[in-house]
Amino acid sequence: MRKIVIGILIVCLYCIPFVYFSMHQDFANRSMHGYLTMIVVTSLLAFFGKLFSNSIPLIIGNILSVIISFYFISEMTVNERWGGYFKPLTPYQLLILVSFFNLIPQFFSLKLANRYKKGNKHNVNL
């Protein structure tokens, strides 16, 4: 039961449109801090998700985050001029690219969580 609740919580936290917020921070403030925050938060979510649950909520959460970011980016391209800012890419191409590259630190977080879980199992058995 605990794993299910934690899995649902992880999916809900992943529903934050991380890529959209990062791109909006970049566009509005000309700052890359949004991308760094996205990497840190999603890596922590991946670590704790794998540590206390399994990988299924992480997969679902990443897909939902991309879909929700896509929705907000489509709203912003209608209301503001994002099209020319992220040249040579369109905002949608940047969404896909950033979402893909954001999976890399999450993958390392998953590996770290697996290593941590295995280390704790050996210490408990001693």
Rank of each mutant, 00 (worst) to 15 (best):
K118M: 08
F107Q: 02
D26I: 03
F47K: 07
I104V: 13
F101R: 07
L97W: 09
K117P: 01
R30D: 15
P91E: 03
L94Q: 10
D26W: 11
F48L: 15
F86Q: 03
V98H: 00
A46S: 14
N29G: 05
F47N: 07
S74C: 04
P17E: 01
P88V: 08
L13R: 04
V41A: 14
I10K: 00
L58K: 04
I63V: 14
E80V: 11
H33Y: 13
S69L: 02
S53N: 06
R115D: 11
I4K: 10
F108G: 11
G83P: 01
N54A: 00
T77A: 07
L9N: 01
W82H: 03
Y85R: 06
M23G: 09
I68L: 13
S22K: 03
F27L: 09
Q25T: 15
R81G: 09
I4R: 11
I16F: 14
R30E: 12
R81A: 13
V98T: 12
H24N: 07
I10P: 01
Y85D: 02
L64D: 02
I10G: 00
Q106D: 02
K121Y: 06
N102L: 05
I39M: 12
M32V: 14
Y20G: 06
S31I: 05
T37P: 00
I16E: 01
G61W: 05
S53C: 13
F47P: 07
A28N: 11
S74N: 13
S99K: 04
T90N: 04
K3W: 00
G83N: 14
F100Y: 11
P91V: 02
K111A: 01
G83A: 10
L44D: 08
L44P: 06
P88D: 03
V66P: 02
M23C: 09
V19L: 06
I63A: 13
S22Y: 06
I56Q: 04
M23P: 06
D26Q: 13
L94G: 05
L13H: 01
G83K: 07
D26K: 10
S53P: 01
N79F: 00
F47M: 09
N120H: 11
N54Y: 00
I60G: 04
V78R: 04
A113L: 09
N123L: 15
M76A: 15
M1K: 11
I67Y: 04
V5S: 08
S99M: 06
T90A: 07
V66E: 05
H122P: 00
I67D: 04
F107E: 00
V40I: 15
T90H: 02
M1T: 10
V78F: 01
V5L: 12
